[in-house]
């Protein structure tokens, strides 16, 4: 059974057990979306007429009052009749989207790169169009569990995806799959791209200074974003802070060093929160969000990019605003890594 959703004169067929967001993105119809977990509210839309099942929409994100006035979370809601809907805010990224797709991928590499951290390289059966900074979903074999991983790729690296995965103690996707059994040559399904964590289109990118702060494997999308920004404007000022607990958690230092050599205005700052930096290294102690406040007097005209644990992201937003970055220039990856 499928129902038809109409938005802005475009019609999309929605399966009975398919979220509206999934249906829209697969049809190439842009809808603002970010976490796809029902927690960020980015995909909130208004159902002008028609019936929906709100599914697992959390009461915090979609209040009873909002449900009464016809609002719904596109990533959670299933249609129960044909419906007419409208989006609430402006479309992110100028509304430019790439259709959501299901592809098969072959594991090319699954390598330890830091403490409890692996780089997964997936060769796609065919190229996938995406924006640097977006993420994909993997489904844990034999389960319905979906896990989100950011792409470290630039958009032209569209045949082999690079994901950074940190092991979660007891985690179904990590400790019991990616870190235990997933082997080179395995075939796995990949769904993507998703999310709104990406640069503005090139023609509306003002080329202003950027600061990117990643915690742990939150570095992954920032690598894609930084390289994309630098390829657009090789002399652009880009600060990339990588916050980790200790030196064993750092990775991709050579890659960062190479970027620094090619782009003198690019600075990579590894930050250790639980260890004193060894002498003779460029490592710094503390929290990257605090160091940014120390390093930069004014972030007026800058854009900021945050991916990592929620407390780091919240501290980053505060740090950026304290240095007077315009809130609309502050971007954060909103999906929350699974803890089980």
């Amino acid at each position: 059974m499928a129902y038809t959703a109409t938005v802005d004169d475009q019609q999309v067929s929605c399966g009975e057990d398919q979220s509206m967001l999934d249906a829209f993105l697969r049809a190439g119809v842009w809808m603002p979306n970010s976490c796809n977990q029902g927690t960020c509210g980015t995909c909130k839309l208004r159902v002008l007429n028609g019936a929906v099942d709100h599914g697992d929409s959390p009461a915090d994100t979609l209040t009873a009052e909002e449900r009464e006035v016809g609002l719904a979370l596109a990533c959670q809601a299933r249609l129960r009749s044909d419906a007419v809907v409208e989006t609430l805010g402006g479309a992110a990224g100028g509304g430019i989207t790439h259709p959501l797709r299901d592809l098969m991928a072959t594991v090319l590499g699954n390598d330890d790169i830091a403490r409890d951290t692996r780089r997964l390289r997936l060769a796609l059966s065919e190229p996938l169009a995406f924006h640097a900074g977006q993420y994909v979903e993997l489904t844990v074999p034999g389960t319905q569990l979906r896990r989100q991983y950011s792409l470290a790729n630039t958009a032209d690296e569209d045949e082999v995806l690079e994901l950074h995965v940190r092991s979660v103690s007891g985690g179904a996707a990590t400790e019991r799959w990616i870190f235990d059994g997933l082997a080179v040559g395995d075939q796995i399904p990949v769904t993507g791209p998703l999310g709104d964590f990406f640069l503005p289109p090139e023609d509306s990118d003002d080329g202003g200074p950027m600061v990117l702060i990643g915690g742990g494997t939150g570095l992954a999308p920032l690598i894609g974003l930084a390289r994309t920004a630098l390829s657009r404007d090789p002399g652009r000022r880009v600060l990339l802070y990588h916050g980790v607990r200790g030196v064993d958690d750092l990775y991709d230092l050579d890659r960062m060093a190479e970027l620094t050599t090619v782009h003198p205005a690019f600075t990579f700052i590894p930050v250790l929160s639980h260890e004193a930096p060894a002498q003779g290294t460029a490592h710094r102690a503390g929290l990257p969000t605090d160091l940014f406040v120390d390093d930069i007097d004014s972030a007026r005209g800058w854009s900021g990019w945050l991916c990592g644990p929620p407390p780091m992201v919240e501290a980053g937003v505060k740090a950026f605003k304290r240095r007077r970055m315009a809130p609309r220039m502050i971007h954060r990856e909103k999906f929350t890594p699974a803890t089980d």
Binding site: F320, K321, R322, R323, R324, M325, A326, P327, R328
Partner: peptide
């Protein structure tokens, strides 16, 4: 309502802290 909206948008854009 729009005068107030635009004023506050510009205020928070320039001085988010």
């Amino acid at each position: 309502n729009h005068v107030m909206r635009i004023a506050l948008e510009e205020l928070f854009e320039a001085i988010p802290n």
